[in-house]
């Protein structure tokens, strides 16, 4: 049940699976909207801690999970039972939330959760990071006039998150590309082993806050840049 043999696939797909989701939320809902989807993604993209018995045979720990109720959105999501992972994501996301809620900030921005794997470069090149799945949330901040509208929006954003979540689960179950379990020596190229209780795939969160532009153009340019960087 627990012992598994590493089945290492050497080459990741160069074209990362890129998904863009768009959300209209009120300023105070931004944190919870982003966290709910990112936590859902990380719950899927985490595994129990590996304990290697020899180089390619290992036992896997258990991921606990917990329900989280949103305060400003009528929504409940499931996250990994790992306070450190939670703190880490919150820290990353809070920068985006503060930027988009700043008094003179534009009304939209995007925050991306990117899963990547490292590839050791030959000397003198450093290790490169190759993204294999990128989830971008385009957030449009709306302003509401009164409490009645807030109540409506509270439910509407909940429904909207539910739709996005279904899209996420359907996509994650399609098995486009997932790095294969590594040998012991290469586990840090695939997983973030810094957390004591769970082991997510290597990920990073980046964001940009900008004036509204054509989302498809933005995505294309970003993807071009990313692919170029990945190739170098």
């Amino acid at each position: 049940m627990t012992s598994q043999t590493a089945d290492f696939k050497t080459k990741p797909d160069m074209n990362a699976n890129t998904q863009v989701l768009e959300l209209d939320v009120e300023g105070r809902q931004v944190d919870e909207a982003v966290l709910s989807l990112f936590h859902t993604l990380l719950f899927h993209r985490s595994t129990g801690k590996f304990h290697y018995k020899n180089d390619d045979t290992y036992a896997v720990g258990t991921i606990g999970f917990q329900d989280v109720d949103c305060d400003f959105i009528d929504f409940t999501y499931v996250r990994c039972s790992s306070d450190e992972l939670d703190r880490s994501i919150k820290r990353e996301v809070s920068g985006f939330c503060e930027a988009i809620r700043a008094p003179d900030a534009p009304s939209s921005g995007q925050v991306a959760l990117e899963f990547y794997q490292r590839k050791r470069g030959r000397w003198p090149f450093a290790t490169e990071s190759i993204p294999w799945e990128v989830w971008t949330l385009r957030i449009n901040v709306v302003s509401l006039n009164n409490e009645h509208e807030r109540q409506i929006w509270r439910e509407r954003v909940g429904d909207s998150l539910g739709e996005r979540l279904l899209h996420i689960t359907d996509t994650l179950n399609r098995h486009d590309y997932i790095p294969s379990p590594p040998n012991q020596a290469e586990i840090d190229l695939i997983y973030d082993t810094a957390y004591p209780d769970v082991q997510p795939f290597l990920f990073k969160i980046n964001y940009s806050v900008s004036a509204p532009t054509n989302p498809s153009a933005t995505t294309t340019i970003k993807k071009l840049i990313r692919d170029t960087l990945a190739l170098t």
Binding site: G48, V78, D197
Partner: peptide, 20 residues
């Protein structure tokens, strides 16, 4: 009820599908 289960290392025992 609200679900809450703990994450475990392999030494603490394993569950099917590595899910609590």
């Amino acid at each position: 009820e609200k679900a809450i289960t703990k994450s475990k290392t392999p030494a603490q025992g394993s569950e099917w599908f590595n899910l609590g």
